[in-house]
Design a protein around this nucleic acid. Structure first.
Length: 879
RNA sequence: GCGGGCGUGGCGGAACGGUAGACGCGAGGGUCUCAAACACCCUUUCCUCACGGAGUGUGGGUUCGAGUCCCACCGCCCGCACCA
């Protein structure tokens, strides 16, 4: 009998699949289609365990759907534009294009051995001119539909390198290369009008039935619909009133100042004439542009000297402050501060000694000096002591609504709905991205490139020896003729955000070689993505932008109405983590990170997280093989320098030396082992920790399955003992595992496959029953371990490829249980159990329970206070 | 700072509001072997000799019954619009 050799088996069956072309997707109206998509990777050059997990999950779904009669589309591509390629070019010369395509070739070579059911004929990279040409066509169509426009926006500016920085290139407010303090600078940039669709993007979240609730909630909060009051504060000088927006107009009588953003037009006016204000505003512009940086920055304010009149009392004057925490992008860029009911305003008022007057207090309390802002839920009733609209006691929501009504009735303000969602700035001042296909003409203004001239190709002759955008300083590329009048003009040198590339790739996969962005028949047939799988880190931006793009593509005629929500179901998977092995360098106290193979883990001694360095153990002349005894001796000797600290469940990171290379795992155990392991130990939505022992266990188990099935394959056709029981167990397994796979419970499915394997091994059933059960096992395992399953299938006399075989269906007759065991609880604690026929009426169960020794003893002659019988599940006796 | 999530044995984790700890790892014991490896079998939440009792981050609450629902707190993780 041969043994399980993963390398041979896997190569053999991959070749067989390739030959049969089983994964090539073709339109077939006779079958229901199923489109499985995993978020495509950035071509960093190496696949990592996270990719293996992501693509294995998608592959399980794809193969499972294939076996249930679906016409499956399961494509793969590369999110290939972006900064790392330029960084590599800066660091070690070379061209971003060469670096990227080499990485793609490398990663494709690393992915193929996994045996994924991918239709490689549809592969593309977003940096292929054929792809970005169509993206440029989409851009032009969107421009035509006024879904794109230009306006000023701030960027991180490095004043030393004279270049724009990405947020991740700003470290502690300084440029990562120059170390210079970063400033916020305004540039004219391109924007997608995603805010036009805010209402629809929010309302449609309700229709996303198969999306995780947490993702829907995050998106809803991000879009951030709010109802509030917009009104003007009259100035005491002759200037234009200051328009503010507030979601708490009911607190207007607690106003103690008006705050404006440092980027507010009034601040800009004052900046020009007042050096002190100019200095303050410049101070506010220091630092990065992220909301996090702005929110965490110390609250700074400057009294402009301007005064405004309170709308409800013209004799009441409020000072106008410039405050660094007010965003020009949200609302009107101006607020009124009510320190009593907003913690940020409270901190600000405390710092600058502004009044803090409560508008409302908790019911049943008296007004007192506040030590922090009082911010109850809006649904909570409070007592208004400085209200101006509505009842004295009302909820915050009622207070807000009556305040808006009153302002509208009196004509000094209007209720408005606002969204937190800002328009999507897509301009990037970088080379390695999709060129924005427009031309700037002195006479015609901004003119889109003609479609027949697309793509606007990136020039190859560029250098990265100086910071900044090579397109900007390219000698000839920039110069062109105006597409409209033919006069000399300049190309736009900004390229597109890489989020644009990934916002429509799912649609492109339906017709990847077409000379239009999509093809109607293909998009109609394949869209939507039935199952999308990727990391939770994309919960907001990528998914929201994709939802926007699907709508925009619908508006420009590139997707059907039914594809406005492109992803029917979403699954967000967790990371693959690995322990970090750390010792301390005695000379400088810095941590030293060790590779897993340098360490012997001894985790189950009385001390937890014990590991020792293999090298030092060997150097000391001690054997590695019986390390437990040796470690005990170390401890007795008080010999501790071999001790390695284990930090469990850490994100894999090159700098921590805790990265497990999938290729190593595949070459030592095979792809099926890697696939089995990444699915086995944790629920898919949570992180999974890669452990060497777990991987070995997976490999051992697969070898065991092979051995068991190989033995069964040689059995004769005689009946044995318990044939019926084995088949019952097999059909129970079909039922449970099918339901686990349907609900992404891959770890639970694998646990049941372990259990069923043991049942099969221990069964005394005869050849026919065992062969049938073993074939069912092979089928049930086939989405996870396709190569091994093919091999077993052929050993056990299965017909054709298991990849093309039908998923087993549980026979209802074999699932029927005659009796059930019901636990008996007394006051909610399990005390006994009884076995009763499955359909025994409630009354009879009650009778049996009351007769039970343990229950009778607990009742001690008294009647139970309550007797709850949940048929088929549990009995609870309350005494 | 804001938004979202997670927290169960020595470890990864299982558990429609209904027997907490399935399955796997590690560990202990055993069978086989000259020995080892492999394989196979048994035990393994904690306290207690036992009877029993306790137990799902902490503290409250709802319920006949809470790991699961609600409130507060602690810790960790993800996102915050130019990382992908």
């Amino acid at each position: 009998m041969s043994s399980y050799t993963a390398a041979d088996i896997e190569q053999k069956w991959q070749a067989a699949w390739e030959e049969a072309g089983v994964f090539t997707a073709k339109r077939d109206e006779s079958k229901p289609k199923y489109y499985v998509l995993e978020m495509f990777p950035y071509p960093s050059g190496r696949i990592h365990m996270g990719h293996v997990r992501n693509y294995t999950m998608g592959d399980v779904v794809a193969r499972y759907k294939m076996s249930t009669g679906h016409n499956v589309l399961h494509p793969m591509g590369w999110d290939a534009f972006g900064m790392p390629a330029e960084n590599a070019a800066m660091a070690s010369g070379g061209h971003p294009k060469d670096w990227t395509y080499k990485n793609i070739a490398d990663m494709r070579g690393q992915m193929k051995p996994l045996g994924l059911s991918i239709d490689w004929s549809r592969e593309f990279a977003t940096c292929d001119p054929e792809y970005y040409a169509q993206q440029q066509a989409l851009f032009i169509d969107m421009l035509d539909k006024e879904l794109v426009y230009r306006k000023n926006a701030v960027v991180n500016w490095d004043p030393v390198d004279m270049t724009v920085l990405a947020n991740e290139q700003v470290e502690d407010g300084r440029g990562w290369r120059s170390g210079a303090l970063v400033e916020r600078k305004e540039l004219v940039q391109w924007f997608f009008k995603i805010s036009d669709m805010a209402e629809d993007l929010l309302d449609s979240i309700d229709s996303l039935d198969n999306w995780p609730a947490k993702v829907k909630l995050m998106q809803a909060n991000w879009i951030g619909k709010s109802r509030g009051l917009e009104f003007g504060f009259e100035r005491t000088d002759e200037g234009e009133p200051i328009t503010v927006y507030t979601t708490r107009p009911d607190t207007l009588m607690g106003a103690s100042f008006v705050g404006i953003s440092p980027d507010h037009p009034i601040a800009k006016d004052l900046e020009a004439s007042n050096p002190e204000i100019a200095e303050f505003v410049a101070q506010c512009r220091k630092g990065g542009t992220t909301e996090e940086a702005l929110e965490k920055a110390e609250k700074l304010g400057f009294d402009t000297g301007l005064r405004v009149k309170h709308p409800l009392d013209p004799n009441w004057e409020l000072p106008v402050w410039i405050a660094n925490f007010i965003l020009m992008d949200y609302g009107t860029g101006a607020i009124f501060g009510c320190p009593a009911h907003d913690q940020r305003d409270f901190d600000f008022a405390t710092k600058y000694d502004l009044p803090i007057k409560p508008v409302f207090i908790a019911e049943g309390t008296e007004e007192e000096t506040l030590t922090e802002a009082f911010v109850p839920m809006k649904s909570e009733k409070v007592r208004y002591i400085r209200g101006f609209a509505g009842a004295e006691v009302q909820t915050g929501d009622e207070g807000v609504n009556t305040a808006i009504d009153k302002a509208e009735a009196e004509g000094w303000g209007k209720g408005v709905t606002k969204f937190r969602l800002r328009d999507w700035g897509l301009s990037r001042q970088r080379y390695w991205g999709c060129p924005i296909p427009v031309v700037h003409c002195a006479d015609c203004g901004v003119v889109p490139e003609k479609k027949e001239n697309l793509p606007v190709r990136l020039p190859d002759d560029v250098t990265f020896d100086v910071p900044g955008n090579p397109l900007d300083r390219h000698p000839t590329w920039r110069d062109c003729a105006c597409p409209s009048c033919g006069a000399p003009a300049k190309r736009e040198t900004d390229t597109m955000d890489t989020f644009v590339d990934s916002s429509w790739y799912y649609a492109r996969f339906t017709a990847p070689r077409a000379d239009t962005p999509t093809v109607e028949a293909d998009a109609d047939y394949w869209m939507n993505v039935d199952q999308y799988i990727g990391g939770i880190e994309h919960a907001i931006l990528h998914l929201l932008y994709s939802r926007f793009f699907a709508r925009a593509m619908n508006a420009t005629g590139h997707l059907p109405d039914t594809a406005r929500e492109p992803f029917n179901a979403l699954f967000t998977q967790g990371m693959v983590t690995h322990a970090i092995y750390q010792t301390t360098n005695p000379e400088n106290g810095r941590p030293v990170y060790h590779y897993p193979e340098e360490v012997i883990t001894i985790s189950s001694l009385a001390d937890q997280h014990i590991a020792v360095l293999k090298e030092r153990m060997l150097a000391s002349g001690r054997s590695v093989s019986n390390y437990h005894q040796i470690y005990d001796q170390y401890r007795e000797d008080g010999d501790t320098p071999y001790r390695v600290e284990i930090i469990p469940s850490a994100k894999m990171s090159k700098s921590k030396n805790n990265v497990v290379d999938p290729l190593n795992i595949i070459s030592s155990f095979g792809a099926d082992t890697a696939r089995w392991f990444v699915l086995s130990d944790s629920p898919p939505e949570r992180d999974v920790e890669w452990t060497a022992s777990g991987a070995e266990a997976a490999a051992k188990h697969l070898a065991r399955v092979y051995r068991i099935c190989a033995e069964i394959a040689e059995m004769d056709d005689a009946a044995g003992n318990g044939d019926e029981d084995l088949l019952k167990a097999a059909h129970k397994a079909i039922q449970e595992i099918t339901s686990n796979i349907d609900s992404f419970g891959f770890n639970a499915a694998i646990a049941k496959l372990y259990a069923f394997t043991s049942t099969l091994q221990k069964s005394q059933a005869g050849g026919p029953a065992k062969k049938e059960a073993a074939r069912i096992l092979a089928l049930l395992m086939s989405p996870m371990t396709p190569h091994l399953s093919e091999e077993l299938w052929s050993l056990l006399g299965g017909e054709g490829l298991i990849t093309s075989a039908a998923w087993p269906v549980a026979d209802e007759k074999l699932l029927v249980e005659d009796s059930v065991t019901m636990p008996i609880q007394i006051n909610g604690k399990r005390r006994a159990e009884i076995s009763v026929p499955k359909d025994m009426p409630k009354e009879e169960v009650e009778k049996l329970v009351l007769e039970h020794d343990v229950v009778a003893k607990a009742l001690d002659g008294a009647a139970p206070k309550k007797l709850i019988v949940v048929p088929g599940r549990i009995v609870n006796v309350v005494v």
